[in-house]
């Protein structure tokens, strides 16, 4: 009994001592907070923060070059937890979702030529801006869907992209991917939108698409003194800092560009 015990103890001691020396020799400093933060981050590595992934974000937070609230995917609670680890405070942010500001599906949007090539919006838009007659129309080749890490983009049967709000984490990947720049982040609780991005004048816009904003200002007038929808060079823009609430504005729009998309308050789903 003694011999085995002695042997193993001896071997253990020798290797333990060796390792202790090596540990001294090869010592590396790591901030333990970095690992703690990396553990509570969403771990999707979506890159929405602009960094290469969640572990990069963690080290940036520790280094102080980014705010704990800058992870677009993490909810408030996570941000607060990170802030606690870092010993700082962050303000709560309003939840946001992305939305595609175009309704020009294949039934109503005109094409200017027959496209032959890659099924990719970014590539198609290198050829005269893509085949849609409207310069700000969804090309329907699903670049936003491909980059979405949360399966939150759906391509409709009529060939345009649609964001599923309850899945959207507002990471912004689709916004970067869209070459037509027609996806925007909006407050998650807003329900009235102008689903058109064309600054074309009425006649030109009408030629290209069945649903368009012609800049008639009817919506602007509808709200009177402080318009919650404003016209900017022939395009109505919703003022999301002061989101419109009266759904009847949709009736006023002569070209169906304004839509009322009521949401279930609990789930965030469109009703």
């Amino acid at each position: 009994m003694l011999a085995p015990t002695a042997l193993l103890t001896g071997m253990g001691l020798v290797s333990g001592l060796g390792l202790a020396v090596a540990a001294k020799f090869f010592a590396v400093e790591v901030d333990p907070r970095q690992e703690q933060i990396a553990d509570i981050l969403p771990g999707a590595n979506c890159g929405g923060c602009g960094l290469a992934g969640c572990s990069d974000f963690a080290s940036a937070v520790v280094a102080g070059s980014i705010s704990p609230a800058d992870c677009p995917v993490a909810d408030d609670e996570t941000a607060q937890l990170i802030a606690e680890i870092m010993g700082v405070t962050v303000e709560a942010k309003d939840p946001q979702v992305a939305i595609v500001l175009c309704q020009g599906n294949i039934d109503i949007a005109a094409k200017k030529y027959r496209y032959n090539g890659l099924a990719s919006c970014a590539s198609a838009s290198l050829l005269g801006g893509g085949d849609k007659g409207c310069g700000q129309g969804c090309l329907g080749l699903a670049d936003c869907q491909r980059v979405c890490g949360f399966d939150a983009v759906e391509m409709t049967a009529e060939g345009i992209a649609k964001i599923i709000p309850e899945r959207c984490t507002a990471c912004g990947q689709c916004i970067t991917a869209c070459p037509k720049d027609i996806i925007k982040l909006i407050p998650a609780n807003s329900e009235i939108h102008v689903l058109c991005s064309s600054h074309e004048k009425g006649a030109a816009a009408k030629k290209n698409c069945g649903t368009f904003c012609l800049g008639c200002k009817k919506c602007e007038k509808f709200y009177g003194e402080i318009p919650q929808i404003k016209i900017d060079s022939f395009l109505a823009l919703v003022d999301y800092n002061n989101p419109p609430t009266n759904p009847e504005v949709a009736e006023v729009c002569p070209a169906d560009a304004i839509v009322y998309l009521p949401k279930d308050k609990q789930t965030g789903r469109y009703v």
Partner: peptide, 10 residues
């Protein structure tokens, strides 16, 4: 009619 023309990359 332009709409019948094919456009592709070279």
């Amino acid at each position: 009619t332009p709409r019948d023309l094919i456009v592709s990359a070279s």
